[in-house]
Simulated assay, not measured.
Amino acid sequence: MALVLIVDDSPTEVHVLGGYLKKHGFEIEAASDGREGIEKARALKPDLVLMDVVMPGMNGFQATRELARAPDTADIPVVMVTTKGLETDKIWGMRQGAKDYLVKPVSETQLVEKVRAALGSND
Rank of each mutant, 00 (worst) to 15 (best):
A2P: 06
V53H: 00
P71V: 10
F26L: 10
E29W: 09
T88Q: 15
F61V: 12
V53L: 02
E66Y: 11
V49I: 05
G97P: 14
R42C: 10
V106K: 12
V81R: 04
P105V: 01
K23S: 10
T109E: 09
G97C: 09
N122T: 15
D72H: 13
T12P: 09
A43V: 11
D52A: 09
G19E: 05
L17C: 06
D52S: 09
M1Q: 06
D123S: 02
E66N: 14
M51A: 13
P77G: 11
K40S: 15
G37H: 03
K104R: 05
T73N: 08
Y101S: 05
G25T: 05
L102D: 03
Q62N: 14
D89T: 11
D100H: 05
P77H: 09
T88M: 15
D47W: 04
V54G: 00
V81M: 03
R69C: 15
D52M: 09
L3Y: 00
G60M: 02
G19M: 06
V103H: 00
T109C: 01
F26P: 11
G97L: 13
S121N: 07
G18F: 06
K99T: 14
K99H: 11
A2L: 00
A63Q: 02
M94P: 02
D75S: 13
S32T: 10
D89Q: 13
G19V: 04
V7D: 07
I38P: 08
S32I: 04
A118F: 06
K90A: 08
E13I: 04
W92R: 15
K84C: 01
T83Q: 07
G18N: 12
V49K: 01
G120W: 13
E36H: 09
G19R: 05
K114Y: 08
E27A: 07
T82N: 07
R69L: 15
M58D: 02
V53A: 01
L44D: 01
L111V: 12
G37Q: 01
A30Q: 11
E13L: 02
K40H: 15
